[in-house]
Each structure stands twice: as C-alpha cells, then as structure tokens.
Amino acid sequence: MSIQHFRVALIPFFAAFCLPVFAHPETLVKVKDAEDQLGARVGYIELDLNSGKILESFRPEERFPMMSTFKVLLCGAVLSRVDAGQEQLGRRIHYSQNDLVEYSPVTEKHLTDGMTVRELCSAAITMSDNTAANLLLTTIGGPKELTAFLHNMGDHVTRLDRWEPELNEAIPNDERDTTMPAAMATTLRKLLTGELLTLASRQQLIDWMEADKVAGPLLRSALPAGWFIADKSGAGERGSRGIIAALGPDGKPSRIVVIYTTGSQATMDERNRQIAEIGASLIKHW
C-alpha cells in the first residue's frame, strides 16, 4: 500500500482519535458579512469528516447552483462504474471539434489522439474542462443518470439537468442544476469515506481534487503551510461562485467545507476574496 493510499485508508482512524471539535460562531459572522459585502445569498456548511456531524452552517438547506462543483460527483459516478466493471479508466475516447464547448483548455489539445477516461476526469476536476465533463456525462448516460446515481446514494436534493455550459445559467428560483450545502457536503463525505467506492477509487477521487489547479484564489489562499486540501470550485452566471473541499491540518483532511453564493453584482475577484476570507476565519478558529 502506498503512503497516499495509507493516508486515505486511515482518515477515519486518525479522526477518531482527534480531540473533540467545537464550532466557532466567528466564522458564521464572516459568512454573514460576506453576504453584506456581496449583496447576495451565501450558503455555508462545515462537517466533521469522521462523524458527519454538522459543526457550523448557514442557509444549509437553500438551493444554490452547483456550477462546476458537480464534476466531482460526476467522476465519482464514473469511478463507481469502474468498480462495477462497467468502465475502464484506460479506455480512450475520441471526439471532434464539434464536441468542444466553451472553456476546454485540455480537451482542445487532444482532438487528434483523444483522451482516456482517467485523463478526462483529471481534466474535468483539476482544470474544470467543460468538454471533458460533457464527454464523461455521455459515458454514464447524461445528466439524468448522474441525478439517479445521487438518488441511489441517498441524495434526493442534488440534481443535474443540463450539460456544460448551460448548467451554469443560475436563474433565480430555478431548481435545475442545483444542490443544497448540506446535501453536497453529505454526498461528498460519502464519496470520500464511505463504502460506495473502493479504496482505490476513493484515493483516485481525492487525488484529482488535491491536484486542483484553478481554485488557488479561494480556500487555498488562506491555508497555512502543512495543511491538506482537496477541492473543486465552480463559477456561473449572475454572480455565482462555489467551492467544495476536504481539508485539515497535519497533512490530512478532517472536515468537509461547502460554500456557495449566487445573485451578486460583485466582480469575480471580490467573490473570490470573500470566500478566501471565510476560509481564513475557519482556519483561525479551527
């Protein structure tokens, strides 16, 4: 067993022997301040990774656009098919120029040779490549099948209805392509620590998230040296922004954090800054 596999296998073990965790309302004060600064709703939840206990939450059962955070769930569904012998990570998928959609920095470079399922998941999570996500959605049967996968996990809230990039439209009061912070946090925890996926697939999923290259201005910008984070960000229309993450000190994750916002007129930089400040408060009061 590799060191990384050992780390993920012992996530519940280490967490069980940690000192009790206590909620700190100071972080919620910052979440509410972010709402004021952005002029928009902000949803927040913080779960203990081992027990699933909610440590703090704000608007945990209000719907927010998922945006690209759905790509972690998508690759979880792909990995479940791999575990069941219905898919192979090494299978190569070929596609054409007509398949390319807006923001496809990886797939646009491989029109000639195609990409493997493993490479597509890596591109979808680490670079948020939209064509990679659409190609992977095709392998599982489309958005409705991802929703069905989530329902089978016990998540009857999260739903995907459309493809990239239309799913980022974020129309107010439109339930399409949305989740709730509580539902997303619980589902992410199941994917990373539950028995739904094999140990190898859980490790692969967290490795992809740990290698995320496009979430630097968010929670990662607030992390002290030595902290662990595996995350996936999302951005959408109407001032929408979000991030889902597993993080913790001492090089291992111990909490799940989900943050979503929508309806702001603020710039992307300002949305990023507010999420980073929430992260800084979380870490300060850990």
Rank of each mutant, 00 (worst) to 15 (best):
I3E: 06
Q4F: 10
H5I: 06
H5T: 12
R7F: 09
P12H: 13
F14Y: 09
F14R: 01
A15H: 08
F22N: 09
H24F: 10
T27D: 04
V31F: 03
D33H: 15
L38R: 05
A40S: 10
R41I: 09
R41C: 07
V42T: 06
Y44L: 11
E46K: 10
L47P: 00
D48L: 04
D48I: 04
D48W: 03
N50W: 10
S51L: 05
E56T: 11
S57D: 09
F58K: 07
F58A: 09
R63L: 08
F64S: 01
F70D: 01
L73C: 08
L74E: 04
G76N: 01
V78N: 02
S80A: 11
R81Q: 10
R81W: 06
Q88T: 13
R92N: 09
H94I: 15
L100H: 04
V101S: 10
T112S: 13
T112C: 12
T116G: 04
L120V: 05
S128C: 00
D129Q: 00
T131M: 05
A133R: 00
L137F: 09
T139M: 10
T139K: 08
T139A: 15
K144F: 15
K144T: 14
A148Q: 14
A148K: 14
F149L: 09
F149I: 10
H151K: 14
L160P: 04
D161I: 04
R162H: 10
R162Q: 08
W163F: 14
P165R: 07
P165L: 08
E166H: 10
L167R: 02
L167F: 04
A170E: 06
A170I: 09
R176E: 07
A182N: 09
A183M: 10
M184F: 09
A185I: 03
L188F: 14
K190G: 13
T193D: 09
G194S: 14
G194Y: 08
E195Y: 07
T198N: 12
R202D: 03
L205C: 03
I206G: 10
E210F: 10
D212H: 04
D212W: 02
K213W: 06
G216A: 10
P217R: 09
L219S: 03
R220F: 03
S221W: 09
P224E: 06
A225M: 15
D231C: 04
K232I: 00
G234A: 10
R238I: 07
S240G: 12
R241K: 06
R241Y: 02
L247Y: 03
G248T: 01
D250P: 09
G251L: 09
G251T: 09
I256G: 02
I256F: 06
V258F: 02
T262H: 14
G263I: 04
T267F: 07
T267W: 05
M268K: 06
N272E: 06
I275P: 00
A276D: 05
A276G: 09
I278H: 00
A280F: 10
K284D: 14
H285A: 09
H285S: 10
